[in-house]
């Protein structure tokens, strides 16, 4: 259940006819959304009591024009044995705040967002009576707010990590060029996955946000491993063809096995009945396959094409790899 809360400045503000009419208009507006079942609130109580008071006269099933009649209809409800607690689910006993109950057929975040948006648009286009303010409340609304905050938080932290990883690569390889090359597997992997998610229309949610950060770590690992080994070998051979032969024997085999083991290891999750598990399983599979392929195919291709600048033949130019990188690749 979602609630649209209206607050007045003074006691009894909610009994004013213009406020009652505004609430009723908002109820009808929200009900236009096919996801919304019914919107109930204080105007319904007033109308129902009036209807009953006039002997079930359907012409009286409407809001009265004067504040005293509204107040007296509500008082009648309090007097006639109805549980006042029922009434106070819609309004505070001081009549300074009301609650519209927005029932929805579907509680998913997209649906809730669309209803919230519809309400907010109405608030903008039709200003509430003076002194009245509105805000949303309720668990589904809290969910969309939370999700929004978390996801955008994850998005910005992902960007920040991306930049930090790049700077670290530049620093560790002591080379802007190698720094750029090392970022390729993870850049392409994240882009491929986001493109796929966008293509199938899956919303960017929590599992996606968390897994994107994991991609960063997993993909950079392959790149470091490959590049560091390549440079070490090249320092010895001074010939990129010879170095290639050697690296595909050693590091290349290790990376391929790593990809296969992790990718296959996550396959059972695809058969789960829980959607987040399937997402995680599919994600890991995709991360491993894409970043593995980029490391094993695109990196060597690039190095081959730009071997003159990336792997200069003069052995003096290539310095020893810092111990930290050696360590990181393990």
């Amino acid at each position: 259940m979602n609630y649209l809360v209206f607050e007045g400045l003074d006691e009894n503000d909610m009994k004013k006819p213009e406020v009652q009419r505004y609430l009723e208009a908002m109820q009808r507006e929200l009900e236009k959304d096919p996801i919304v079942g019914a919107v109930t609130g204080l105007p319904d109580v007033v109308k129902k009591v009036r209807f009953e008071f006039f002997g079930a006269d359907s012409s009286k099933l409407a809001l009265p024009d004067n504040v005293n009649e509204i107040a007296q209809m509500l008082f009648l409800y309090e007097m006639s044995g109805g549980d006042p607690d029922d009434l106070f689910k819609f309004v505070t006993p001081e009549y300074d705040q009301v609650n519209l109950w927005v029932q929805m057929r579907n509680g998913d975040n997209m649906a809730v967002s669309s209803v919230v948006e519809r309400g907010n648009r109405f608030l903008l286009e039709h200003a509430p009576p003076s002194g009245i303010t509105a805000r949303w409340a309720g668990l589904p609304y809290i969910n969309i707010e939370w999700q929004h905050q978390m996801v955008s938080g994850m998005r910005s932290s992902l960007m920040a990590s991306y930049i930090v990883v790049f700077l670290m690569m530049v620093f560790l390889f002591r080379s802007l060029r190698w720094g750029l090359v090392s970022m390729l597997p993870l850049t392409i992997t994240v882009m491929a996955i986001y493109a796929f998610i966008g293509f199938i229309g899956k919303p960017y949610d929590m599992p996606v946000a968390i897994l994107s950060s994991l991609t960063l770590g997993l993909s950079i690992d392959f790149a470091i491993h490959f590049i560091q080994r390549l440079r070490t070998i090249h320092k010895r051979t001074s010939d990129f063809r010879k170095s290639f032969d050697e690296i595909f024997q050693g590091a290349g085999r290790a990376i391929s096995r790593n990809v296969l083991v992790i990718a296959i290891g996550f396959v059972p999750m695809l058969f789960s009945t829980l959607v987040p598990y399937i997402t995680v399983g599919a994600f890991f599979l995709a991360i491993m396959v894409v970043s593995g392929l980029v490391t094993m195919l695109l990196l060597p291709a690039l190095v081959r094409t730009f071997h003159k600048t990336l792997l200069p033949v003069k052995a003096d130019d290539s310095e020893t790899v810092p111990a930290a990188v050696e360590h990181a690749r393990r």
Binding site: F54, E69, Q72, M73, F75, E78, M79, S80, G81, P84
Partner: peptide
Amino acid sequence: VPSVDLVKPISADDKNSSFVG
């Protein structure tokens, strides 16, 4: 109810309900 100038009997089933709120 003065605003509509009408007298009506009202239900008295529940003696346990709140007296004038």
